[in-house]
Structure formats: C-alpha cells, structure tokens
C-alpha cells in the first residue's frame, strides 16, 4: 500500500465518527427542514405537499423583501465595522505591555454576558431624556437628542451596536492568537531591512494573518446574517419594530414557526437563508484565498 493510500485510510478513520454524527444531527435535520419547505404544516397536523407555493408567496410578500434588506444591512454594516475595530484594537493591544491583561479582559468580558440581560441595559441607555444615558450626554454636548429605537432609520444601527459590542472580544482574541502565531524572525528581518511600520503591516502582518482574516470574515458574516438575540430582546415584544425596521430573517423565521405555527413557510425562509449563506461563504473563501 502506498503511503498516500495509507494516510487516506487514517484520515477516514479519524473522521468517521464525526461524519456519522454530522449526518445524523446536522444534515438529516437540515434536509428535513428543506422537505418541510415544500409543505403546508402547522406542527401538529399532517403535512400537505404544496410544491413551491411557499417560495412563490415569499416572492410576492413585501415584508419579506424588507426583512431581507434589513438582514443585508446588518451584514454590510456589521462585518466591516467589527473587523476593522477588532483588528485595530488587537494590533494595538499586542504592542502594549502596561496593563495588558487588564485591558484585554475589559475588551473580552462583554462576550461573557447573556444577550437577555445586556439588551435590557442597552435599551435603557437608548431612552430619551430624562432617563437615557446617551441622550443625556448628547444633551450636555448641546447635540439634539436621537430617537434610537423609536426611529425607523436609527433603530437598526442601534440594535447592531450591542451585537458588535458583544462579539468584539471574540474577534480580538482570534486576531491576537493570529498575531502571536507570526514568527518573530519575520519582523526582525524586516527591521534589519529598515521597513517602516506601515510596510510591515502591509507586507508581513496582513498577509500572515490571512487564515485568521478568512476565518473571521466567514464566521462574522454568518453571525450577522443570523442575528437574532439582540433584535428579539431589544425591540418591543421582540417584534423587530418599529414598522419592521429592525426585523432580520431569523426573527421572521422564528415568528412564522412558533407564533403562527406556519412551519412550511418558516422552512422555506430557512432555505433562502441557507442559500444566501452558502453562496456568500464560498464566495469569501474563494476571493480571500486566491490572491
């Protein structure tokens, strides 16, 4: 037996149990969800096969398009803002020695909290005067108060902020682990060449961080496209209001499944979400890998 073949057998041995697990616990339920999307099912009664009716109804539903638009807004705002912020913070933290552990802990601790409790605090910060902290500060600075959650345009960013806030610590830690994995010798060589800080960043740090950046881009895109907790906990009665301004796709799915018991409809939206996510992920892996 060739070495290659032997190693391939080893590889399949290693991943056989996980593959069975993934098939049973992930793929099978996923396919199940897909098959439900072609039916009319209220969770309890019989499933009636209705072909692509659910998808056709979605296509003609203006609220669905608004929800889809919101979902992309979360993605397009959330991913760049959080990645740039976390890279800058991780990079700066990496060069700081005084109080390093303390600072890093401060940035990470929000990640330890539960969305339910923190959403309440954020909701409180966003209130108008006399109780909202942010508006009180704005008032002190002589700036007109913002409506935040009670505005159709400001509500989405207001809900996004705590999502970025809570996930930042995660991204920073991953970036720092990536930064630390870059061999010191590369920097020393660059120093000897007399390269400036910006050139080191562009020619060593960023290229070396490529696997980390790929990972974070993919993971945070998936995260923002699947945003739910913050919206559910920060808008009145978890409705994603006002006037659907903050409602993302997963909340829409949740409402269809567990409030209206329209499982077929919920499953159809899941298929849409799945296709979007798969497309974006493969696209990102392709673009970011081959340069």
């Amino acid at each position: 037996m060739s070495i290659g073949k032997k190693r391939a057998i080893t590889a399949w041995c290693f991943i056989s149990v996980p593959i069975i697990y993934f098939i049973l616990v992930r793929f099978y339920p996923t396919l199940d969800a897909f098959s439900i999307s072609l039916t009319d099912w209220n969770i309890v009664g019989k499933k009636t096969y209705i072909g692509f009716d659910n998808f056709i109804r979605l296509w003609h539903d203006p609220v669905f398009w608004q929800v889809l638009g919101n979902t992309f807004e979360y993605l397009l705002l959330g991913v760049p803002i959080s990645l740039i912020l976390s890279f800058i913070i991780a990079h700066s933290l990496d060069q700081v020695r005084f109080g390093h552990g303390f600072l890093r802990a401060c940035y990470f601790i929000p990640f330890l909290t539960t969305a339910v409790a923190m959403a309440w605090v954020w909701r409180w910060f966003y209130q108008p005067v006399p109780v909202g902290m942010i508006n009180l500060v704005l008032g002190q600075l002589g700036i007109k108060q913002l409506d935040f959650l009670r505005s159709t345009t400001e509500a989405l960013p207001a809900v996004l902020a705590p999502a970025i806030w809570a996930g930042l610590g995660f991204q920073i830690v991953i970036f720092m682990a990536g930064l630390r994995a870059i061999p010191q010798s590369y920097y020393e060589a660059a120093k000897i060449d007399g390269a400036g800080a910006f050139r080191i960043l562009r020619e060593i740090t960023l290229p070396q961080l490529r696997p980390t950046i790929v990972f974070l881009t993919v993971i945070s895109s998936i995260g923002f496209l699947r945003i739910f907790d913050q919206v559910y906990n920060m808008t009145q009665e978890g409705e994603g209001g006002p006037l659907n301004a903050t409602r993302p796709l997963v909340l829409h799915i949740y409402k269809a499944a567990f409030e209206r018991f329209e499982m077929g409809m919920a499953a159809a939206q899941t298929v849409v979400l799945f296709v979007i996510l798969l497309f974006i992920t493969i696209f990102q892996l392709k673009v970011l890998k081959n340069d």
Binding site: L24, Y28, P29, T30, F228, V250, A267, L273, T281
Partner: peptide, 22 residues
C-alpha cells in the same frame, strides 16, 4: 469541509423541531 462548514448556516431555530423528534 464545505459540508461541515455549511452546518453553520442553518439557524438553530429551524433545527430544534427535528432535534426534538430525534
């Protein structure tokens, strides 16, 4: 790899019913 990665793309909200039956 892609198959395992794709499992990240299904929201838990949709899987809980099949899981429950399982």
């Amino acid at each position: 790899f892609i198959a395992i990665l794709s499992t990240l793309m299904i929201p838990t909200e949709m899987l809980v019913i099949p899981w429950y039956i399982l």
